[in-house]
Each structure stands twice: as C-alpha cells, then as structure tokens.
Amino acid sequence: MSIRIVPELQSGNQREKSAAAEPIPPLLFANLKSLYLRRAERLRQLAADNPLSDYLDFAASMATAQHQVLYDNPLTLDLSEALQKSGDTGAPPLDLNTWPRSDHWLRLLTALIAELRPEMPTHIIAVLDNLEKSSVHELESDADALLNRDFSLVSNEKAPFIWAALSLYWTQMASLIPGKARAEYGEHRQFCPVCGSIPVSSVVQIGSAQGLRYLHCNLCESEWHVVRVKCSNCEQSRDLNYWSLETERSAVKAESCGDCGTYLKILYQEKDPQVEAVADDLASLILDAKMEDEGFARSSINPFLFPSE
C-alpha cells in the first residue's frame, strides 16, 4: 500500500467508503505547537549521563531556536495547485527534488543564526560566521546537495544549520496542505508521502494509534504508517531481526533486514512514552555502531548527523 494526499473535497467524498476499510490514519502531520519544544526537552533529558551530552545539548538549543523562529517567521502559501498537480502525477505535493524553493528558507536560516549566536561556544560561532558570509548561490548549492543526498559536498559543520532551516520551511509548508491522506495500492512507502524524503526513525505509538508504527520524516516532520514486521526500506518480511543494547524492555531497538542489509531504529512509546523520533535516535548512536559491526547500513538520516560521504 502507498499513501496519497488528496484535496479536502475529494477526501470527503471518499470518507464514507473508506471509513470501514481504513480505520488507521495513514498520515500524521506535525503538531507545530509542541514539536520542537518537546524535542528540546527530550534531548536535554537524554544528555544526562550520555557520552554525547555536549552534542545533545547543542541539538536541544537548535530545537529551541527552531521553535522560536517558527513563530517569528510565519508562512502564508496556497498549496491547492501543488496538491492538484500531485494528484495528477503521483509525486509528493512538496517533492524535495522539484519544489521551487522561495527565499523564505534563507530568512529562516538567518533567524536561526541570530537566535543561536548568544549561547553558542566560540567554535560554533565561527561556523555561524561562515554561514552569514556565504552568498545566496553558495547556500542554495549547499541546500541542493543536502536534498539530493550529496553529503560530501557540504561540510559536516554547516549541514545541520542548513538542514534545520530547510526542515522548518518544509514543516511549515506541510502544515498548510489543504488535503487529507488515504492509503492506496502501491509501493515505495520508504519515502515520505508529503515531501519524498526518508525517515529518521520509526515510532510504535500509544493512545489513539496504539501499537501502530509510523515513520518520522527527517525533513517535513510528518509521520506515515507502515505495518510492523516488514522492512521499512525494501518491504520484505523474511529476515527481520531486532537489536538493542539493553533488555527486551528497551524502548529503542534497531530493526534489521537481511534482504537489503539495512536497519532502521524503532522506538516504543509503550515502553517509554517520552521517546522522540530525532532525539532518541541521536542519543543511541552506540546502537548504530553495533549495527555497523554486524554489517548493516542505516536506511535513515538524522538531521543532526549527516554521513561524510
């Protein structure tokens, strides 16, 4: 099954037909009121007694800045045409490969730099200075490289700041989509149905979505449903294994697939209601090292940790 976003009216026409057949919400948009503050709180909580405490604290500062910049720089945008085009082509409405970026994301980057500067140490301030001195052409080229996953073209120091601004931009746009999602037959559920990016991790939820797994987009922060006990990358289910650093009650595990040789973190809210897709993935890098030793490659990217090549 794939997920498609359709206009409100069209979704309404399908509602009665799909109510019995589709009780599972296929797509969850981010709650902008709490997204970044909850992430910052979780990162600071996880920083205690963690060997990556300094970097987790930095990530928490970034999330806090994103929250402030989000409300200081609102976005107004009519996405009706983009949604209609998406329906005609089958591509995500905010496709990261084709979306014509406005300079709003650059304003977000400038605001992030200003928000972060007062509390950053000297070596990070130097990175912020370099970003401020970069031309629009250089920044746009870096953005293109990150979105195209040409990570070796962007320094590891600059990448998290540029991605943070891009992510804010896409998250704002996603919140303005005038449509609903529905599940359809098809494949490629490893990609976000909103923007076409890849997940950072997956979360098995509690509450109204009890026991359901949702992949969390590393760009627009949307979450989409993918059934459990199925590889989120190649959709096979023959050779899945689950790894953790603690006991069976661990809230963070890695789901590995012997078919495609990749893994994705899976977080269990029933074991820890505070788990957060980005924060808990970043704080469990020791598990990534274990998975690498076992011969598996990540199928995801954390917005605070880009591969060097």
Rank of each mutant, 00 (worst) to 15 (best):
S2P: 04
P7A: 09
P7I: 08
A19H: 14
A20H: 10
A20W: 10
P23A: 11
I24D: 06
P25M: 10
L28M: 12
L28Q: 13
L28P: 07
A30Q: 12
L32H: 13
S34I: 06
L35Q: 15
A40V: 12
A40N: 04
A40I: 12
E41R: 06
L43P: 10
A47R: 01
A47K: 02
N50L: 06
L52F: 10
D54W: 01
L56C: 06
D57Y: 00
D57C: 04
D57Q: 11
D57R: 04
F58D: 07
S61V: 05
S61E: 14
H67D: 15
Q68M: 09
V69D: 06
V69L: 11
V69R: 03
T76E: 13
D78W: 02
Q84D: 14
S86D: 03
S86A: 14
G87D: 03
A91G: 00
A91T: 07
P92V: 05
L94A: 04
D95T: 03
N97P: 00
W99G: 04
D103S: 14
W105M: 07
L106S: 03
L108M: 11
L109R: 03
T110Y: 03
I113M: 00
A114T: 13
R117K: 12
R117P: 03
P118I: 12
M120N: 08
H123Q: 11
H123P: 01
A126H: 07
A126M: 10
N130K: 09
E132R: 07
E132Q: 13
E132T: 07
K133N: 13
S135G: 15
L139W: 02
E140L: 02
A145T: 14
L147A: 08
F151C: 04
L153I: 08
V154M: 02
F161S: 05
F161W: 15
W163N: 09
S167Q: 15
S167G: 13
S167P: 06
W170V: 07
Q172L: 10
A174T: 10
G179A: 10
A183L: 14
E184T: 13
G186S: 07
E187N: 15
R189H: 11
P193A: 07
P199N: 07
P199I: 01
V200P: 05
S202N: 14
G207Q: 11
G211Q: 09
G211A: 08
L212C: 06
L212E: 09
Y214H: 08
Y214V: 11
Y214G: 10
L215T: 02
C217R: 04
S222W: 05
E223N: 12
V229G: 00
C231G: 01
N233G: 00
N233T: 00
N233M: 02
C234Q: 02
R238M: 04
D239F: 01
L240T: 03
S244I: 01
L245C: 03
E246S: 15
E248V: 10
S250M: 03
A254T: 04
C257P: 11
C260W: 03
G261V: 14
G261C: 10
Y263I: 02
Y268G: 03
Q269M: 13
E270A: 15
D272L: 07
D280Q: 05
D280M: 08
L282G: 07
L287S: 08
D293C: 04
G295M: 07
F296I: 05
F296R: 00
A297F: 06
S299L: 01
S299A: 15
S300E: 05
S300R: 01
S300P: 00
N302P: 07
F304D: 11
F304P: 09
P307K: 01
